[in-house]
C-alpha cells in the first residue's frame, strides 16, 4: 500500500507542466468531456511543436459559444492547427507567434505558402504580420486574392512601414457587387 501511494505521489510530481496546462479551465467549463479531450490533444500537439495555442483555445470557445456540435468544434480546431503548421513551414522555425497567426489567417484567405515565403523575404526586417493582416482584410472585404497580394507585396518591396500598410488598406475599398475589375 505504501508503495502504491509512493508511486502515485511520484507520478504526480513527475506530471509534466504541459500536461497540467492542457487542462484549460475555460475549456473545462464550456466543452463536453469528449470534445474537450480532443481539443486538448490538439493543444498538446501545438505545444510540442512550438506553435501558439491560444488561437486554438479561442476557436474552441467560439464554437461553444455558437452552439456548434462537438465534432465541428474539433474539426475547426484541427483546421487552425493545420494552418499554423503550414504557416510554420512557410515562415521557418524561427517565426514569431504573431507572424504565425497572421500567416495562418492569410493562408486561409488564399495566400499560398510560396507567397508567405516571398513576403518573409521582401518585407522590411522580415516582419510579415502587418502585410499579411492587411492582405487578409483586403480579401475579406471582397478584393480578389491576386490583386490584394500584388498591392501588399509591392508595398513590402518598397519598404512600406506599418503606417503605409494601414494607409493602403484604408485606401483600397472593395468594389461593390457588379463592378468588379475585369481580369488584367
Amino acid at each position: 500500500m505504501r508503495r502504491v501511494i509512493l508511486l502515485l505521489a511520484l507520478g504526480l510530481l513527475l506530471r509534466s507542466p504541459a500536461a497540467a496546462a492542457a487542462q484549460d479551465p475555460r475549456l473545462e467549463a464550456r466543452l463536453d468531456s469528449a470534445t474537450r479531450v480532443r481539443v486538448e490533444a490538439a493543444l498538446e500537439s501545438a505545444r510540442r511543436e512550438g506553435l501558439p495555442t491560444e488561437p486554438l483555445v479561442q476557436k474552441a470557445l467560439e464554437g461553444a459559444s455558437k452552439g456548434a456540435p462537438g465534432p465541428r468544434i474539433v474539426a475547426a480546431v484541427a483546421t487552425v492547427l493545420a494552418d499554423l503548421r503550414r504557416a510554420r513551414e512557410a515562415l521557418g522555425p524561427a517565426a514569431a507567434e504573431d507572424d504565425l497567426v497572421a500567416a495562418a489567417a492569410a493562408l486561409r484567405a488564399g495566400a499560398t505558402p510560396a507567397m508567405i515565403g516571398e513576403m518573409r523575404r521582401v518585407a522590411p526586417h522580415g516582419a510579415v504580420a502587418v502585410p499579411l493582416a492587411v492582405f487578409t482584410d483586403l480579401v475579406a472585404g471582397g478584393m480578389r486574392t491576386d490583386v490584394a497580394w500584388r498591392s501588399v507585396a509591392d508595398l513590402a518591396r518598397k519598404g512600406g512601414d506599418d503606417e503605409a500598410f494601414l494607409r493602403l488598406r484604408d485606401r483600397l475599398e472593395p468594389a461593390p457587387p457588379g463592378s468588379a475589375p475585369e481580369a488584367p
Binding site: 483546421t79 489567417a105 482584410d137 472585404g141 494601414l166
Partner: peptide, 20 residues
C-alpha cells in the same frame, strides 16, 4: 469592420486589428 473570412460555425463574424 472587415468580415472574418473563415466561417467555421455558420454565424457571421468580424475581425478587428489593433495597432501597436
Amino acid at each position: 469592420a472587415p468580415r472574418a473570412l473563415e466561417d467555421d460555425f455558420g454565424a457571421p463574424t468580424s475581425v478587428i486589428t489593433i495597432a501597436q
